[in-house]
Simulated assay, not measured.
Amino acid sequence: MSAIILEDRGVVEVGGPDAAKFLHNLVTNDIAKLLPGQARFCALLAPQGKILFDFLVFAVGEGEDRRYLLDCPLALVGDLVKRLGMYKLRANVTVTPRSGELVSYAFLAAEKPQAEAVALAEDPRSERLGWRALAQQGAIPASGGRADYDAARVAAGIPEGGLDFAYGDAFPHEANMDLIAGVDFTKGCYVGQEVVSRTKHRNLARKRVAPYRTSQGQAPAPGAAVRAGEIDIGLTGSHSGEIGLALIRLDKLADAAAAGIATTAEGVSLEFAAPSGAS
């Protein structure tokens, strides 16, 4: 089974007796029930409800030795460590960057890989993304291509922060976190929870990352304006071949569809589908 190394990912370890409670009270998903062999997709939000960081969380160890490994964008490791440090106060936790030691891998297969991993779990966002692992540097030979992972991610409709939405500027619903197991609406309070809950219960999500397909060859490059006639309705993001993702104003997309107006980007026609996980 091919192991795809994700070189743009970093790792932050949160340990100590209060680690579970500390993380559970901060992030969008349920950490209190997370067990070894599982992963949670989470975000740490600003008080205003916008995504500052998103990451996969793995539980490692048992009892008093339990710690949590956060698989996050490598470029954001330093900022994430600082942000978590701001919330420590008197909590008995340690926050340690581990990117120099641990490497993130993806396995695009349904069966569990046999790998010497520190943490190994199914990717909770989509079955199409298979398994994720964190392992010591050099412990797992990389034999798959990164383009294969990106193609699977785009085909599954899974957004990537910094490409499909901007950190500090997007709400969880806009990044489809409510549709891809990134938000637990029953866990109680966390930073930004009131905004996320209000968006859900009042159906206030006006924008989302939506998948599209073009029959005219290669999908447009990221950052291209999506237009319905003469009206700008969004921006393109990730793409692979003829498929891609775009952050779109849902009301304007619906109006264009009802009026029979084509949506285009860089002169290429785009046919949109419902966001991943949406009915």
Rank of each mutant, 00 (worst) to 15 (best):
G61P: 01
P97Q: 01
G157D: 11
L108W: 14
G138D: 10
V268A: 04
R98L: 15
G16A: 12
A273D: 15
L23D: 02
A91Y: 12
K21A: 12
D164C: 02
S215D: 15
Q48R: 13
P220N: 08
L6F: 00
R40Y: 04
V77I: 07
K21D: 13
T214D: 06
Q193V: 13
A262R: 11
R146K: 05
T28D: 04
G15T: 08
T214Q: 05
W131A: 03
D18K: 01
D79T: 12
A106H: 01
S269T: 13
D184N: 15
R66T: 15
L26P: 00
P73G: 02
A273G: 15
A115D: 05
L245M: 10
G61L: 03
A119I: 08
P220S: 11
S2W: 10
F165K: 02
A181I: 08
R9Q: 15
E62T: 11
A258P: 00
V209H: 05
E194H: 07
Y149V: 06
A109S: 14
R198G: 05
T236C: 14
Y190R: 10
L56T: 08
A224Y: 00
A273H: 13
C189N: 08
I180G: 07
A39T: 06
I51E: 04
R128H: 09
R128P: 00
G130F: 05
V81H: 03
F107D: 07
D232G: 03
A142V: 15
L253E: 10
